[in-house]
Structures are given as structure tokens and as C-alpha cells.
Design a protein around this nucleic acid. Structure first.
Length: 384
DNA sequence: AATTGGATCAACCGCGTCAAC
DNA sequence: AGTTGACGCGGTTGATCCAAT
């Protein structure tokens, strides 16, 4: 198609922005809003293409950007959402107010990906690299169902983001300080939120209810794990999507995590990060998805707060399930992790879960915690 | 002190999507 | 229905910093 690269025009500057350029862009947007990015540079007196201006604004100059080190909660959120959504940085960014997709992407590529890799977790699939624990039929179906759901949810996120974009373009809605990732994140945002109750993860909610309703029935009857996968009606309406790659595959890691999270814990599981001492959760995550190789001994002893609450969610719990619950649940869930073989080992005692119902209960809790996460964090995100 | 190599992150590039014409 | 232009997203690049040698 006949689209000329916007930066091909001669005379347009490229490369790092100077403070003077920043000032010009900032001043113009503060006064007029960005309007058409294409037209902005000329109006603002900048020798830049509109695209460059937009990027500079959204990734750096925007006043509602939080800079600096990522918190543990943010790291955890990124990892979980990446497992669910894959490299959908903008979608992930909607759950991390004040962080840009570019920043999250960079952080993933430079920190999180490497850490997971080091721990023997495939950062793409979130599964152990040497994963030979291919699930039995029922579990495979379980994974496939989750894959479908993840894909559907992913598509829904896109659609909602589109709606947001459209609403942003409506006359009267100021776009001055808003970008796709955080336009609703600021409480001072002039952009209207979609009216009505939150539609957060309707699909997952519905699915959650259906699946666990059925699963509990089945578990009560047979205790069989495969019950989840037997319900053809559990498939998402978009089940024609392939579940072989991308997001779908990522979600199977959750299945692994969930599956292995049933049972009792030996109470150990303390570790120390090389630099931050904050990676116990990933250790748990790693344990949760069935990695059995031990960490280096120097990483294995450090206590970890039994429960911590993300600062972004403190004092913001009037409407949703208190978000600290998410971390607590998630951490508890992981702390209570015990892979299948561990279930019968160690103290040799009987597992306190034993039957399938706890398995389903844990799964339910896990997904509840995901729901809590997405419900609570961006209650004012553009997605919801 | 100079060099090297890895880490980090801002910025660019190419492509897909969608609305307007 | 096809074309065009604008925007946004994800992948990649390159400049800079910093620690190790």
C-alpha cells in the first residue's frame, strides 16, 4: 500500500531527543493535546516525524510514567501475564499502571527472560525446558481448554483496547495526557471510563464457574483429573484457534503450575536471589511448574515474608476482592506446592489433599487469584 | 589508564489494523 | 470494493554505561 515511511522526509531529525525538543513537545501537548501526531511536529516546531513524537511522549515525557526499578509485585505480574498473554506488551502494560509497554518489554528481555532461562524455565512457554511431563490425555485437554480461554481472553483484550482507542477519539475526550496504556490509570484522567460494571475477564469468570462447577461434580464422582478436559462445552467460542503456539501454549504452563500446586508443602522453599533476594516467588513458580533440579545451594536459604501486599493495591480495595489477596493466594498456593511425586515422599505421610477435589479447589483458587489480579490492579485501566 | 564485553534502555523500523475517502 | 493515510504494536538496533580484565 502506498504508505510512505513517516521518517523518510529529508530534514527530519532522528536519534536521541534533546532537552529543547522535549520542552517543545511537552509545551505543545500541554497546551493543545497531541491531536494528530502527523501534524504535531510542524505545529510544535519540531524537526521530527509524528511517530517519533508519539513515541517520545508515550515512553518518556508523559507525566504519569513511573520510572525506576520494578517492584517484586510488578515482576510477578509481568511473568504471570506473560504466561497468559505472551508478548502482548501493551496488554500487559494495561495491568501495570504507569509503566509503558516499551519499558515492560525491555525489562522482560533484559531481566525476567534471562532469569527464567537460568532457572530452566522456557521464557516463551513458561514450562520447564526439559519438560517430559507431558500430561496425560485428560490433562492435555485441560491444557487445551486453558489455551483456548487464554486466546479468547487475549482477543477480547485486543477488542477492548480498540474500543478504548475509539472512545479516546470521541470529540470532547481530551487525549492530552493519555496513551493507550495508561489513559485510565490516572485518577485525574479526563477520559471517561466505560460506564457500568466492570467487565473484567467475563469469560474467565464464567468459565471459572462452569469449569469448577463441573469439575467438582466430576471430582466428587471419580476424583479423576481428566474431568476438566471432558467437557466439550468448556471450549471457548473461538476454539477454532490453534492452541499449538503462542499464548495458548503459554497457558499450559499455568496448567502445570496448577496441577503441581496441589498437595502439601515441606515448608522449605526458601531461597536467595543473587542480587535482590526477591526471587523466592519464582522459585516457587519454578517448583510449581515441576522443575526438580535444585537451585545452587547459595540460593537456597533466606526467609521470605509470608505475605506481602503490593503497594499499588493498598488502600484500593473497596470494590474488588482485596488485592493483597492475590499475592497471598498466589504465594500460598505456590508455597503449598508439591509436585505429584513429592506428594508421597518426604515425611512419608499421607498428603492432605489426596483426592481430586483439592486439586480442583487449588485450580479454582489459582484462577481466582488471577482474576483478582486483573480485577484489582487496573480497576481503572483502559481494558476494564 | 586503556580496552573489552555485557547490560540497559531509548529510539527506530516494519507491519497490521482500521477508518475515511 | 479498493485505496490511502494514520496509528499502534512488537521486534530490533544502537548509543551509553559500567564492571571486569
Amino acid at each position: 500500500m502506498g504508505r510512505s515511511p513517516c521518517c523518510d522526509k529529508v530534514g527530519l531529525k532522528k536519534g536521541p531527543w534533546t532537552p529543547e525538543e522535549d520542552q517543545k513537545l511537552l509545551a505543545y501537548i500541554e497546551e493543545h493535546g497531541h491531536g494528530s501526531w502527523r501534524a504535531l511536529p510542524a505545529k510544535a516546531g519540531l524537526q521530527r516525524c509524528g511517530k517519533s513524537c508519539r513515541l517520545r511522549w508515550t515512553n518518556y515525557l508523559r507525566p504519569d510514567i513511573k520510572r525506576g526499578k520494578f517492584s517484586l509485585q510488578e515482576e510477578q505480574t509481568i511473568i504471570q501475564l506473560h504466561a497468559l498473554l505472551g508478548n502482548r506488551w501493551s496488554a500487559i502494560a494495561t495491568h501495570l499502571p504507569k509503566r509503558t509497554d516499551n519499558e515492560i518489554k525491555n525489562y522482560w528481555n533484559t531481566h525476567l527472560k534471562k532469569r527464567l532461562d537460568k532457572m530452566g524455565i522456557d521464557p516463551v512457554t513458561h514450562k520447564p525446558k526439559n519438560d517430559t511431563l507431558v500430561a496425560s490425555d485428560g490433562q492435555s485437554k485441560n491444557a487445551a481448554n486453558l489455551s483456548h480461554m487464554a486466546q479468547w481472553e487475549s482477543a477480547r483484550l485486543e477488542a477492548e483496547a480498540r474500543l478504548v482507542r475509539q472512545s479516546k477519539l470521541r470529540p470532547g475526550s481530551s487525549t492530552s495526557y493519555q496513551t493507550q496504556s495508561s489513559e485510565f490509570a490516572s485518577t485525574s484522567s479526563p477520559v471517561q471510563k466505560p460506564a457500568g460494571p466492570s467487565r473484567c475477564l467475563d469469560v474467565l469468570k464464567a468459565w471459572n464457574g462452569v469449569v469448577w462447577g463441573k469439575a467438582n461434580e466430576a471430582a466428587g464422582a471419580s476424583g479423576g483429573v481428566s474431568a476438566v478436559g471432558t467437557g466439550g462445552d468448556l471450549e471457548s467460542p473461538t476454539s477454532t484457534l490453534s492452541s499449538a503456539a503462542g499464548v495458548g501454549e503459554s497457558s499450559t504452563a499455568f496448567v502445570e503450575l496448577v496441577r503441581n500446586s496441589s498437595g502439601t508443602c515441606d515448608g522449605g522453599g526458601t531461597m536467595k536471589d543473587e542480587s535482590e533476594g526477591e526471587w523466592k516467588n519464582l522459585t516457587e513458580y519454578r517448583d510449581g511448574i515441576g522443575i526438580s533440579t535444585p537451585f545452587p545451594s547459595e540460593l537456597q536459604e533466606t526467609s521470605f515474608p509470608s505475605a506481602w501486599e503490593p503497594e499499588s493495591m493498598r488502600g484500593n480495595s473497596t470494590e474488588h476482592v482485596p488485592c493483597g489477596n492475590f499475592v497471598e493466594k498466589f504465594t500460598d498456593l505456590l508455597l503449598s506446592n508439591c509436585s505429584g511425586d513429592r506428594r508421597f515422599s518426604d515425611d512419608g505421610g499421607e498428603s492432605d489433599n489426596g483426592g481430586g477435589s483439592d486439586y480442583y479447589e487449588d485450580n479454582k483458587n489459582y484462577w481466582n487469584s488471577i482474576l483478582n489480579l486483573v480485577n484489582s490492579s487496573p480497576s481503572d485501566s483502559p481494558i476494564f
